[in-house]
């Protein structure tokens, strides 16, 4: 192999690797990026059913219910504009409580319910999920 050629081939391979990584990433991102919704942003007639999303807002006062199995929670997330009923099976974070911020990771069901696989509660001001802090500053519902 000629000297010039080998260097050229290596450079082309490196370029191919970078482009390959980009293509792989873009195709993955198209399918798997989890969008963030406040209850008011959820398109009622076009629910994002095919992918995991994050739902953030306040836990509505008086909405937390425990099922008889002792590990399933039902509550309502609200942002003042709309409400979404959420079901969560698991150990809720310590700071999960009514009238407090929460981000639920999970999927919408066809009937508009949200099944959460994971809950992130507002820990304290420092460790709050930034998207939640942003949304809540916007709607003025963050009171410290």
């Amino acid at each position: 192999m000629k000297a010039k050629n080998q260097r050229l081939i290596l450079a082309l391979l490196a370029l191919a690797a970078v482009i390959g990584a980009g293509l792989l990433a873009v195709s993955g991102l198209k399918q798997e990026a989890a969008f963030f919704y406040a209850p008011g942003d959820v398109p009622k007639d076009d629910l994002p059913l095919d992918r995991a999303v994050r739902l953030g807002g306040m836990v509505k006062a008086g909405s937390i219910r425990h099922d008889a199995d002792g590990v399933t929670l039902r509550f309502v997330v609200t942002d003042g504009k709309a409400e979404v009923p959420v079901t969560f099976k698991g150990i809720a974070p310590d700071l999960f409580k009514e009238n407090s911020g929460v981000v639920a990771e999970g999927r919408f069901q066809a009937d508009g319910r949200f099944i959460a696989a994971n809950l992130l509660a507002k820990h304290d001001e420092k460790y709050m999920p930034p998207e939640l802090a942003g949304k809540m500053h916007k709607t003025g519902s963050l009171k410290q």
Binding site: A21, L24, A25, V26, G28, L29, E105
Partner: peptide, 24 residues
């Protein structure tokens, strides 16, 4: 490295353009 880098930075870039997503 490229896949991890893009997946890590994309939410930050999207956020700066006003869209909130998370990659897991």
């Amino acid at each position: 490295l490229g896949v991890v880098l893009i997946g890590t930075l994309y939410p930050l870039i999207a956020q700066s353009m006003g869209q909130q997503i998370s990659i897991g």
